[in-house]
Simulated scan of single mutants.
Amino acid sequence: MCVLKTNDLKRIFQELDKNGDGLLSAAELSWLLESIGGVHFSLQEVESSLGKSCLNFDEFLLFYDSITKQGGDGNSEAVPADGQDQGCKKEDCDLVEAF
């Protein structure tokens, strides 16, 4: 999985936040996980793994960072603080393609 820019993650967050409350619910996150990975988690499983029922944008960034590190060889790059991507092509990114 390639690293996405902070701007891309913000856009994805806003697309997922269907009710516009600035939070992603366990249901919205479950839908994302199922859409990009084909893995179904119950709402209880999502909440249990997050330790809460919803995430704000900063928590979503941490969530993204954790799933990108788990999906690779442990050497995945984090999104730089300036939000600049180091050559990621949008067509190569599953999350970007979803939106």
Rank of each mutant, 00 (worst) to 15 (best):
G37K: 09
L16T: 01
N75R: 13
G51H: 08
K69R: 15
V39W: 03
D8R: 00
N75D: 08
I12K: 02
L61V: 12
L50K: 02
A81P: 13
G71E: 14
V79F: 01
L62R: 11
L33K: 05
L33N: 05
V79G: 00
A78E: 13
L29A: 03
L29H: 02
V79W: 00
V3K: 08
I36P: 03
A27M: 13
W31D: 09
K89G: 10
K90P: 15
F57T: 04
G87E: 14
K10R: 10
F60L: 09
K18G: 05
F57Q: 02
L62C: 10
K18P: 00
F60T: 00
G72F: 12
A27R: 11
N7H: 03
M1W: 12
D8H: 05
L43I: 06
K10F: 04
C2Q: 12
E91S: 14
S49K: 09
L16G: 01
V79K: 00
V3Y: 07
S49Q: 10
R11Q: 12
S66P: 06
R11K: 11
H40E: 06
S66F: 03
I12A: 11
D85R: 00
L50Q: 04
F13W: 02
F57N: 07
F57G: 03
G87I: 08
D82S: 02
G74W: 08
N75V: 04
E15G: 13
A98H: 15
G38R: 09
G87T: 12
G22C: 11
G37Y: 10
V96C: 14
A78H: 11
K10I: 04
D58N: 14
K52S: 15
V79T: 02
A26H: 03
K10T: 02
V3N: 07
E28T: 02
L62Q: 07
Q44V: 07
E34S: 12
E59C: 04
D92E: 08
